[in-house]
Design a protein around this nucleic acid. Structure first.
Lengths: 157, 157
DNA sequence: TATTGTTATACTCTATAACTATA
DNA sequence: TATAGTTATAGAGTATAACAATA
């Protein structure tokens, strides 16, 4: 497309940006996985804790919908978390088929610790970035996420 | 910390940015997973193809090191890719213990298609972003990735 | 003795399908 | 009849450990 003598290594800016984004996502994922493994957690289980932390007691069905996984999957994740004493199941007050899941004190502490760890990481990562540049960065992240969701919604499953 | 009457919902800018980054990483991961599933691939297998596309024929050992997984894991991934006719194993010319892995023509086409798909996505996502803002975004991604790697290197496994 | 790739085994996440108890 | 959660089964990714062939 472009003359070869003009910086042949320079790829398209959009491609470059998305490639960097993938790279960051991968490094970030690996790092978080390692950090959670030290706390005896996995990504999937942490997602459950996170959901319960923000949504309060919910049925397993609701949890499955929110996490985008099957009810069967939720059963397994909760079994593991319950064995570790992080969540507890209670009978639903009116619907005897359903189960209400909530965090135990231990589960709440563990989730709060995740939050703290994430904040510390954020402080480290963005220490050097000037406030206005950080704002632009955050806004662009939001814009791209929105756009990505729109693209995904186009191909309906 | 701050007076409550001052936008109580406004979190720390760094936290907000990292949270958005996690959100984007999750959406992006889900989307790519879905896209690759349509092509009969998984994330792990695509990573193998990607590595072979860029590194040329390598031993399984080198592949394991580069991907950050165990040699056993590589064996399984290659078995699957070979069954689909995407990679081939050849005897190493000088070391009779080792195996050289490379992409087949079909594998090369499939990987090139991934590249094209990614470029199309990039064009869609960043269509609205002005060039200078995109540059800043990309640079910040790079900076954060670097910083993240430095943090990870601190805790040496 | 060290290294390459494999077999053996196990754990986690994920899915579908069939089943039970309730609604 | 439909829904909530479970059992049963399966497949993918990952890991460790033991082993064979080769260096």
């Amino acid at each position: 497309m472009k003359p070869l003598h003009d910086k042949p290594e320079r790829p398209d800016p959009a491609r470059r940006s998305l490639d960097r984004l993938f790279e960051l996502a991968e490094v970030l994922g690996t790092m978080m996985q390692r950090g959670m493994a030290e706390k005896g957690l996995t990504t999937a289980r942490a997602r459950v804790l996170w959901a319960l932390f923000h949504e309060g007691p919910v049925t397993q069905r609701a949890l499955a919908t929110q996490l985008g996984v099957t009810p069967r999957n939720v059963t397994g994740l909760l079994d593991a978390l319950q064995e570790d004493g992080l969540v507890c199941r209670k009978a639903h007050p009116t619907d005897r088929r359903a189960t209400l899941v909530s965090l135990t004190d231990k589960g709440r502490s563990a989730t709060a610790a995740l939050r703290v760890g994430r904040d510390e990481l954020a402080a480290l990562l963005f220490a050097d970035v000037p406030p206005d540049r950080l704002d632009t960065f955050t806004a662009t992240l939001g814009l791209v996420t929105e756009r990505l969701r729109a693209v995904g919604a186009d191909s309906p499953e």
